[in-house]
C-alpha cells in the first residue's frame, strides 16, 4: 500500500498557486532558443548542420512537452480558457498533441498508476521494449533506432492513446498546422516544419522513451530520480524529472517542484543506480505490473543476470569506443578524400570510388579527423583489454599515444612516408589520451550490485 508522503498543508497550498509569469517566461525562452537554432542552421547552411539540429531541437521539444504537461494539469492559470489557449498554441499543438486528448490519457495514467488500468501499460505491452532485466544491446539499439525514425510505431501508438476529444480541438490543431505550413510554403521555408517534425519523430521521441524507463519501470510507484543539472537541462527540462513529487502532488506547477522536493525527505536514486537496477533486475516483461526495484534502487536479480549484463556492457564498450570511432574515421577517410591511397586499391577494384562526398567538410577536418578517431580506437581497445592497474597494461596502453606521436615524428624525420603535420601530431596524441581518460572507468559499473566473489 502506497502511503502519501506527509506535507504541511499550508506549504502545499502555497506551492500549488498557479502563476502565468513563470510558465510564460519558460515558454518564451524555449521558443527563442528554437528560433536561434533555426537561424544558426540557415546561416551555416550545411547538411551536417541540418542533421545535427535535431538534437537541440529535440531538447527544446522536451521542454515544451514539460510545459504542455503543466497546461494539461491546469497549472498555468485557474482561468481555463486562458490556460488552454496558452498551453495549446505555445506547447501542445506544435508537438502535434491536443490538451483534451492528452488529459484523457494522462489523468487515467495518474489514477491507474501501478495497475493495468494505466494506459502507459498498454503502450509498454503493445510495443514490448521495456523488459526487465534490461538487456544493454537491445536497449541501446532501440535508442539508436529512434535516430533513424524507429520511434514511428511508438508515435502512432501514442497518437491513438491521446486522440483529440472534441471537434473544436481537431479543428484547432488542424488549422494551426495548415496555417503554419501555408506560411512556410509562401516564405520558401518548408524545411523548417520538416526539420521540426523529423526532430519530434527522432530525438524528442527518444527522450520520451528514456522517461518511460526512468519514471515507473519495475515499481508500482514512481522512481524518485536525481538528475544532474546539466543533463536535466538537456533531456529532462523544467524539472520534468521530478516525477515522484509530481505524481504525489500534481497540483504543484513545475517551477515549484524543486521546493516541493526539498520539503519531502526520503530516499532518492541517481540515474546510474537506476540503470544498474534495470540491468540486474528480477524479470518483469514489458507491460506487466510488478515491484522488482525498490525506492533505493535495490533489486533481486540472480547471479546469472548480473553476469550476462556485465558481458553485454563490455560488448557495448568495445562497440562504442573501438568499432564506432574506427568506422567514423573510415567513413570520413573514404568518403571525403579526393583520392584513395594504394591500401584501398582492392576496394576500387570492387567498383568503390572514394571521395563521393568531397567538399562537404572542411579539408583540414578531413585530414585530421581519421587520425584522431583511429588513435582513440586503438588506445581505447588497449585500455579495455588491459585496464589501467597493471604495469604491463600501462606499457601496452602507452603504445597508443606513442604510435600517434611516433608516426608523425617519423614522417618529420623522413623515416615514414607521408608529410609531417603538427595538427595531426597534437590531435592524434590528444585523441589517444582522451581514450585513456574516458575508458579508464566504465560509465556504468555493475560491481556494487554484483555478488562478492566466493572465497576458495
Amino acid at each position: 500500500m502506497r502511503v502519501r508522503p506527509a506535507i504541511d498543508p499550508e506549504l502545499l497550498a502555497a506551492l500549488s498557486v498557479p502563476r502565468v509569469a513563470p510558465w510564460l517566461c519558460a515558454a518564451v525562452v524555449d521558443w527563442l532558443v528554437v528560433v536561434a537554432i533555426f537561424a544558426l542552421v540557415a546561416w551555416v547552411d550545411h547538411p551536417v548542420a541540418y542533421a545535427l539540429a535535431v538534437f537541440p531541437l529535440g531538447s527544446r521539444q522536451q521542454a515544451l512537452g514539460a510545459l504542455f504537461h503543466d497546461a494539461a494539469h491546469h497549472l498555468i492559470t485557474r482561468r481555463k480558457g486562458a490556460n488552454d489557449a496558452l498551453g495549446s498554441v505555445l506547447a501542445a499543438w506544435p508537438l502535434g498533441l491536443t490538451l483534451g486528448g492528452y488529459r484523457a490519457y494522462h489523468f487515467a495514467h495518474h489514477r491507474g498508476l501501478g495497475t493495468l488500468d494505466d494506459p502507459e501499460m498498454a503502450h509498454k505491452g503493445g510495443l514490448r521494449q521495456w523488459h526487465l532485466p534490461a538487456a544493454p544491446l537491445p536497449v541501446a539499439a532501440s535508442f539508436a533506432g529512434d535516430l533513424v525514425l524507429g520511434g514511428i510505431p511508438h508515435l502512432v501508438a501514442a497518437g491513438r492513446l491521446t486522440k483529440p476529444v472534441s471537434w473544436r480541438e481537431t479543428l484547432g490543431i488542424g488549422a494551426f498546422w495548415l496555417g503554419l505550413l501555408a506560411i512556410a510554403y509562401r516564405a520558401h521555408l518548408v524545411w523548417i516544419p520538416v526539420l521540426w517534425i523529423v526532430s519530434i519523430a527522432t530525438v524528442f521521441w527518444s527522450g520520451v522513451r528514456l522517461r518511460i524507463w526512468t519514471e515507473h519501470l519495475g515499481t508500482k510507484d514512481t522512481h524518485r530520480v536525481v538528475v544532474p543539472t546539466w543533463l536535466a537541462h538537456a533531456i529532462m527540462p523544467h524539472d520534468i524529472g521530478l516525477h515522484w513529487e509530481h505524481h504525489w502532488f500534481p497540483s504543484v506547477p513545475f517551477w515549484n517542484l524543486a521546493k516541493l522536493r526539498a520539503a519531502l525527505p526520503g530516499p532518492r536514486v541517481t540515474l546510474t543506480e537506476l540503470a544498474r537496477a534495470f540491468l540486474t533486475s528480477a524479470p518483469l516483461p514489458s507491460g506487466t505490473i510488478g515491484e522488482t526495484i525498490d525506492a533505493e534502487a535495490r533489486t533481486m536479480g540472480d547471479e546469472a543476470t548480473v553476469a550476462a549484463a556485465g558481458r553485454d556492457l563490455d560488448r557495448l564498450r568495445y562497440a562504442g569506443h573501438v568499432a564506432v570511432p574506427l568506422a567514423l574515421g573510415g567513413f570520413v577517410y573514404l568518403g571525403f578524400r579526393p583520392k584513395l591511397p594504394r591500401l584501398f586499391a582492392p576496394l576500387e577494384a570492387l567498383g568503390f570510388r572514394g571521395g563521393l562526398l568531397e567538399g562537404y567538410l572542411p579539408p583540414r577536418f578531413v585530414d585530421v579527423f581519421p587520425d584522431v578517431a583511429w588513435a582513440y580506437a586503438l588506445t581505447a581497445l588497449l585500455v579495455l583489454v588491459w585496464g589501467t592497474r597493471e604495469l604491463r597494461g600501462k606499457l601496452w596502453i602507452a603504445v597508443g599515444p606513442g604510435l600517434a606521436a611516433g608516426w608523425e615524428l617519423g614522417q618529420l624525420a623522413g623515416i615514414f612516408p607521408g608529410s609531417y603535420d603538427l595538427a595531426d601530431l597534437v590531435f592524434g596524441v590528444a585523441g589517444a589520451l582522451a581514450a585513456v581518460v574516458i575508458c579508464k572507468e566504465p560509465a556504468l559499473s555493475l560491481s556494487p550490485a554484483a555478488p562478492a566473489p566466493k572465497a576458495e
Partner: peptide, 30 residues
C-alpha cells in the same frame, strides 16, 4: 611448470600491427 602466454598480449600486438599497417597504407601515395 609451463609458460602460458596471456592472450591479451596477442590481441594487443595484432591491434597495434593492424593500426601500423593502416597508417602505412593510408600514407602511401595513390
Amino acid at each position: 611448470m609451463t609458460m602460458r602466454l596471456d592472450v591479451r598480449h596477442l590481441v594487443s600486438l595484432l591491434a597495434v600491427a593492424a593500426f601500423a599497417l593502416l597508417a602505412l597504407g593510408s600514407a602511401a601515395a595513390p
